[in-house]
């Protein structure tokens, strides 16, 4: 059985990992590495950093699987979202202290030829605005909007109450809406 075909639940795989079963670890990595890579990428903005964050988080899990305790009631994924987002944000803070290292591949190679210069410019500008959001607002937005976690799960990942999460989400979206409006006004003013 290949690691991708392992049908055991995350909790069962974690129990097997605690017993030192390497194939269970491989199955868990295969199942979840991309999901957590996307999260790390959205928080760090750099492909390499995101890969490193996810790799280190999984190695930490392998060394100390008891750090996730199902008796506490959270799903494995909820707990691991917490581990990965903490690592990613901490790396981002370090990068912010060394701005020359933080530029990286935020402007990546995904802009296809079909994308007009305007749309591309607008998207990159908006990505810059999302990255400029305060850390907690950005994390709330990434978890709820991009990772599509329920508000309840996202609040649990962030270790805050549901009302606080909703307030962060509202502030993030309001800021971005205002940013887009001013962008459009500026563009309209430039034309006029």
């Amino acid at each position: 059985m290949s690691s991708a075909e392992d049908k055991r639940s995350d909790a069962a795989l974690m129990a097997a990992i605690a017993a030192g079963e390497q194939s269970a670890y491989a199955a868990l990595v295969s199942r979840h590495s991309m999901r957590f890579f996307r999260l790390a990428y959205r928080l760090t903005g750099r492909h390499e950093d995101a890969e490193d964050v996810v790799q280190e988080a999984f190695i930490q899990l392998w060394r100390a699987p008891h750090m996730w305790d199902p008796a506490h009631g959270s799903l494995f994924t909820t707990w691991f979202y917490q581990v990965v987002s903490n690592r990613a944000l901490s790396l981002r803070r370090q990068a912010a202290r060394h701005p020359q290292e933080a530029l990286g591949d935020i402007v990546d190679s995904q802009c296809g030829a079909e994308e007009t210069l305007n749309a591309k410019h607008r998207r990159l500008w908006l990505e810059g605005r999302i990255r400029a959001l305060p850390e907690r607002q950005k994390l709330a937005l990434v978890l709820c909007f991009y990772e599509e976690l329920s508000n309840h799960e996202a609040a649990e990942v962030m270790g805050i109450g549901i009302k606080a999460l909703q307030s962060l989400l509202m502030r993030a979206k309001t800021t971005l809406r205002e940013d887009i409006n001013s962008f459009d006004e500026l563009k309209a003013g430039g034309r006029g």
Partner: peptide
């Protein structure tokens, strides 16, 4: 518009690397 942003690139070799 937000959905079109922050698209994560593919990382096909990540699991094997880890």
């Amino acid at each position: 518009e937000l959905k079109s942003c922050l698209r994560a690139p593919a990382a096909p070799a990540l699991a094997a690397r880890i």
